[in-house]
Design a protein around this nucleic acid. Structure first.
Length: 291
DNA sequence: AACCAGGATGGCT
DNA sequence: AGCCATCATGGT
């Protein structure tokens, strides 16, 4: 990979396994929005950048080499060889062979632990466009103003301290629905116990999920997502409606319970479970498998 | 208007 | 531990 900076842009040459559509639409993130030119603009790590792929080059706009090295290299998980991961998964069965080719450019982003905690609480029994709206509203209301980019204002996701200033009513006014009380309670718990969410990363996967489930509004599925997307616990397998459908379509019986589907998948995919989940989710949702 | 979405919770066995 | 009924918002 060759990296260089030009005109407030960082350009990556020869990056393999990187496609913005696959990365930003495989269900792992909520703050990246497609632009008219096919690029994606999003907020992460308190910055706003724009990402587009043209042929084999990736353009990161509104940033520089220093930020790339300190933030984006890690955020886009560029130190991981996804070709190897895909090859292992593709050799397992014909379904993953197809799904990994379909979502060939997926990378699991290394996102903020606290932001994932609140974001996936909002995700419970909700629709993705509504989740995105609620997170944007919370950020606009309670997060720091980052700046203007191409005529639009952008706001960082609120810190625990910032979100703790919001009343339950104000949280609900951000379109969080009945999850307002979960967000309020979880934020208070983080503040009152002076919790540092990044410390959850050093726990084992089982311990991490067990601890996350103690937060109000965090059940098994949401804890799996927070652990996978916020704490790089790649040996877990969140089972949502789409993953349930694709698993029932390809691997298990209709009557298998969600926890059993999860165990079945982790037994099968082991330390690559999180990657497998992403390829399968993207494949299922893009193709509408199981409707 | 009924149905459903990246489910959680509490009560039951 | 595992299953089940109930809860709950906003969109289509």
């Amino acid at each position: 990979m060759n990296v260089y900076e030009k005109d407030n842009r960082v350009i990556l040459e020869g990056v393999s396994d990187f496609d913005p559509k696959h990365i930003f639409e495989c269900g792992q993130c909520f703050r990246w929005h497609k632009q008219e030119d096919g690029s994606y603009t999003g907020v992460a790590k308190g910055k706003v950048i724009n990402v587009i792929r043209i042929d084999d080059k990736i353009y990161l706009d509104n940033t520089n080499l220093e930020e790339f090295n300190s933030i984006w290299y890690n955020y886009f998980d560029l130190g991981t060889n996804y070709t190897k991961i895909k090859n292992k998964l593709k050799n397992m069965d014909k379904y993953l062979d197809t799904a990994a080719d379909f979502g060939w450019g997926i990378r699991i982003l290394r996102q903020d632990e606290w932001e994932m905690l609140i974001s996936f609480i909002i995700s419970s029994n909700n629709r993705i466009p509504m989740i995105q709206k609620a997170i944007e509203n919370l950020s606009r209301k309670f997060g720091k103003y980052i700046g203007d980019y191409k005529g639009k204002d952008y706001y960082a996701f609120p810190t625990p301290e910032e979100l703790n200033k919001a009343t339950q009513e104000e949280i609900r006014a951000c379109q969080t629905g009945f999850r307002d009380k979960y967000i309020k309670s979880t934020t208070e718990s983080v503040i009152e116990n002076n919790k540092n969410m990044s410390e959850y990363t050093s726990l084992s996967t089982d311990e991490c999920i067990k601890e996350l489930t103690k937060f109000n509004g965090v059940g098994p599925k949401v804890a799996d997502c927070i652990a996978l997307f916020g704490m790089t616990k790649l040996d877990t397998f969140p089972v949502d409606v789409w993953v349930k459908r694709v698993m029932q379509e390809f691997y298990v019986n209709e009557d298998m319970s969600l926890p059993k589907i999860r165990i079945y998948a982790i037994d099968k995919f082991e330390d690559l479970s999180g990657y497998a989940q992403q390829y399968l989710f993207y494949y299922a949702r893009e193709l509408g498998i199981g409707r």
